[in-house]
Design a binder for these strands. Structure first.
Lengths: 337, 337
DNA sequence: GAGCGCTCTTACAACGTTGTAAATTCGAAG
DNA sequence: CTTCGAATTTACAACGTTGTAAGAGCGCTC
């Protein structure tokens, strides 16, 4: 076994042809005599040749890699404990795999981290960026755009920006929750919203309130949560003390809904008999909860896949106009409401 | 804004020096006149220069990237729903970040996927591999080794292999659980093991059994689970029908422990009053569970970080002997036992 | 049989960086 | 006023690939 990896040159020597011919065989370009092709192929086999990615990237200006940037508000690396990101990763990997493109995981939770992300992409270390950003004031999309980096967002940008994104109709999701609670006869309904500086939270809340109003309930008490179990529990406690007679809760994600269920039960109330609880996302906690959560499904994996697809087509033919793909929510009825 | 990115050449022209000098300024190599250094630095600023990673990699033979390979037994991309992987990712990213190294996420859950991982690394697309492999028969470690790819495993390899790895003392973990259950007066104890073709499962079970035997309980009924909530629930149901008088359960991970708690409660029994439950891992489900789980802590994030550290030092000075880092478990007492 | 298209192959110049050996500068010593 | 040497700087050759323009080979047609 030679010390350093075999190169095109080595293969060419063994096969008795020129580098260029070997290159064409490797890349499957036409115009190579089938017989010669065979010779070359066996020479490749024999030498154990594997094309050097750096050299290839240098000339093609493509890396076969995209950045998957988690642009958390600043939560640090424990964002990964949220099941949401696992689902995003799953969807992205699933879509990218058949295309032989690989995601590089990056966290952009601080200013230095953000500039590093931008640098990384400017250096051509990845062909484009998949940006999962929750905060509408996140400066990253604009900076990537300015740097000419092809990017696609998960969730629409805070300020109007010419960039492609994937999103879902969060208002419609809120409406589904309201409709279901009202249809099941609940009259004293409250809601635990997500952080209100997140557009998705605002939309879920607005959709929920709109629908409740349309059903004849103009006022819906709400408490703001932070999409974490802890914050959800605290919000539920607050709501219960202020509105002891409540009989329905819509929580803006499953983590908070699950925590709410526990708090309700600890207050000696039964779910769904005394209080109905509707969650949002349909992620693992929805199934792990007892009773299992009725929830508004967000097709995260498909959305993530769509995001990857948008980016890939953008890389395929650059300079396209920004596009968006909006997904529809769906109510999943289980035991909690 | 120019069409293509500025190169060293461009900066050199603006600064009125040679490429090499600029290169040395960029890389912080000594022997550059401070004044000239300033000139060059402002030229860089002015041109908006950013070094091209592919070109740099080509000559340095380093990419600043490592592969984070999830070598699931075949579960597909839903492995990401297991909180375990989120923790691994968190630990890895946290450690790698200050070193400006980025992980490329890869799944090796099928034969073609495995060869793609090997190819990826042989092409020099990443400097090394972080392998999270649960199955001892996984052929990937050996193949990477054969390909001369620096790699580090999470969990010791199935067959003796000259490769560095990080692991924890799973037997000790099992012992901790047994000691605690016995100390709290439980006498009819059962266990839900992980999949028995996983070394960690075998060890946890063996450690648990050993300790129970030492405490005077030579026989411990067990049911095999698959580390998923569903399998844990099924195992618990089985155990309850066969051993209705059980008063203690040790489950090989928190997901299964949580499911077990639900099953126990559905049988009209109370946790921990009637049945004590001890989990393993101390991951999010342990806290999300009611009652919160007493569990054996596996410091996944730190282990993942250690794995990254091993790899990085290996890349720093190649050809080191394989090393291993073994972590100690710790009992976290909460409400369930 | 010369000329003309074909198809297939080859040489050679990029791509943008780093590292090394050679060249320059400049001050100090002889 | 040379000459030597240390401190900087420069020119140039890699690194391994792709793409392009030029070159062979060869079966046609006229």
């Amino acid at each position: 076994m030679s010390k350093s990896a075999p190169t095109l040159e080595d293969v060419a020597r063994v096969a008795g042809v020129s580098r260029a011919t070997v290159s064409r065989v490797v890349n499957g370009t036409r115009n190579v005599d089938p017989q010669l092709q065979e010779t070359v192929r066996s020479a490749i086999e024999q030498t154990g040749y594997s094309p050097n990615r750096a050299a290839r990237s240098l000339v093609t200006r493509r890396t076969g890699t995209v950045a998957l940037v988690i642009s958390g508000a600043g939560g640090g690396s424990d964002v990964f404990t949220d099941p949401f990101f696992g689902r995003v990763a799953a969807g992205v990997v699933d879509f990218l795999r058949p295309h032989s493109v690989h995601p590089v995981l990056m966290l952009a939770d601080s200013e230095p981290a953000r500039t590093e992300v931008v640098e990384f992409l400017r250096q051509g270390s990845a062909d484009g960026a998949l940006l999962v950003t929750t905060h509408p004031a996140d400066p990253l999309p604009a900076r990537l755009l300015a740097a000419g980096v092809p990017s696609v967002l998960y969730a629409r940008p805070g300020a109007p920006t010419p960039v492609s994104y994937v999103d879902m109709d969060h208002r419609a999701g809120g409406r589904l929750a309201a409709d279901h609670l009202v249809a099941s006869g609940r009259t004293d309904v409250v809601t635990i919203s997500g952080p209100l500086d997140v557009l998705a939270s605002q939309d879920r809340l607005a959709g929920f309130r709109d629908a409740m109003a349309r059903h004849g309930f103009p006022y819906v008490p709400s408490a703001e949560g932070g999409f974490t179990a802890e914050s959800g529990g605290a919000a539920m406690t607050r709501l219960l003390t202020e509105h002891p007679d409540l009989d329905g809760v819509f929580a803006a994600n499953d983590l908070m809904a699950q925590a709410a269920v526990f708090v309700i039960q600890e207050h000696g109330l039964r779910v769904p008999d005394d209080v109905a609880v509707v969650g949002f996302d349909d992620s693992t906690p929805a199934l792990a909860c007892r009773p299992q959560l009725t929830t508004v499904r967000q097709p995260v994996e498909q959305m993530a896949a769509a995001m990857a697809e948008l980016l890939l087509t953008d890389l395929e033919k650059p300079g396209q106009r920004p596009r968006s793909v909006i997904f529809e929510p769906e109510l999943v009825v289980r035991a909690s409401a």
